[in-house]
Write a protein that binds this DNA or RNA. Structure first.
Lengths: 222, 222
DNA sequence: ACATTTCTGTTGTTTTTACAACAAAAAGGA
DNA sequence: TCCTTTTTGTTGTAAAAACAACAGAAATGT
């Protein structure tokens, strides 16, 4: 735990807390650190969820399996992101998503339920914690709406251009690196990988974009 | 304001507050009530947002215009739902969505920004308010993920079946009424209306579903 | 350095969807 | 009530996407 103390202290979820407050919170939450290897399933759809997971390093995909076995990537998470916060907070104790580790990860696990009951009025730092989580959730919300915008475009071309221009905006540059590989990007945008590759090539030929692997350049204002 | 007092008091956003607390909050938020007519634009994409809107009655669609002019319905809101909460809370002051009134609506407008600055430590009820909003946001989050699930299905048929079975689950019954008309449902699921109508007919013929207008019956476990 | 595996791009074919145009049904108003 | 407007359903055609199969490139392990 000590090894990750600074990282935990600087995470948005514990933002603005003094050491003694953080210590109290970690104790209160029965915090433990757990390591996962790439490929591990952290949460499986149907699991009963009572804990919040804070990613300290590594990479985790939030996915759904469609009824027909196709994978849907909801989002890709990294350091400082959390898993299951909205589920736990909204009392949806049964998970409707899978959390799959895609790069070896270290995760801080917080027993939110236990603390929430115990702290209701007692834990004086709970207020700051809620405020932090409130901000985090509101950001997640905005991101989910952005994702909906991306996948709501009608053609593969429009999905790609919308996604890429959103990424460009987030990076405040027309040169940027994307977080997905091709198959993952296709699963994120809900399109066929090969058709997507084909469309990317066309966009490159037309001079609208340029790319090599995960490095992209947007040539024009899209 | 008096006319809507009970409604406001019972809304999730002010849940659990005593009258005197509510009064203090409403004053603090410089709360005002505004009426909109069907067709009115409450928020336009690009507007600077500093206020939260609580719908007291009526109906409001959250929409986006795609770059190419197609309408995307993000969600449909009713009594007790809020508009712009996540935007304001995440400091995304420039709106990326349109809020369009679809049935004459009454809205309580809260100047969150002004209060937030003022109340930081002063307003003792702010804590309860944040806790309420935290819960609301977490629910919205889960709903957005559900919407992503709906529109991430690969075929029109799968989108319809996923949407309908989700609605069925929410209503805890295989007989239920949907909130969208056909064009709106198509814009929500990002598919062509006529193709959707055709697929609905097919599903009815095959005996998987039955419907008349907005009343649906799911015949089998889908 | 080599072999193996994974990832990405390309092409042709089949399936699905969008689109347009119109018919039928329902809703709303005078 | 009848007329008008809106909503929903139907059909054929053109366009787009999924799918499958494979080739080339890049990454990985030994």
């Amino acid at each position: 735990m000590q090894k990750y103390y600074q990282k935990i202290k600087n995470s948005p979820i514990f933002f603005g807390m003094a050491d003694f407050e953080l210590d109290r919170m970690l104790e209160c939450f029965k915090a433990v650190i757990k390591h996962y290897e790439s490929g591990d399933t952290i949460i499986r759809s149907g699991d009963i969820i009572t804990k919040i997971y804070l990613i300290l390093d590594g990479e985790v995909n939030i996915e759904k399996d469609s009824y027909w076995g196709r994978r849907i990537i909801i989002q890709k998470l990294h350091e400082n992101n959390n898993i299951a916060l909205s589920l736990v907070a909204s009392k949806n104790t049964e998970s409707n998503i899978n959390a799959i580790c895609t790069k070896d990860a270290t995760v801080l696990i917080l027993n939110y339920e236990k603390c929430s009951a115990m702290c209701q009025n007692a834990c004086m730092h709970h207020g700051a914690f809620i405020r932090n989580m409130f901000k985090i959730l509101s950001k997640e919300n905005v991101e989910l709406i952005e994702k909906i915008e991306n996948i709501s475009q009608k053609s593969i071309r429009d999905k790609l251009l919308t996604y890429l221009s959103n990424e460009s905006q987030k990076n405040k540059s027309n040169i940027f690196e994307i977080q997905f590989n091709r198959q993952e990007l296709a699963d994120y945008l809900n399109i066929d990988r090969s058709a997507m590759s084909f469309e990317l090539s066309k966009l490159k030929q037309e001079g609208l974009i340029n790319y090599k692997k995960n490095k992209f350049i947007l040539r024009v204002e899209v």
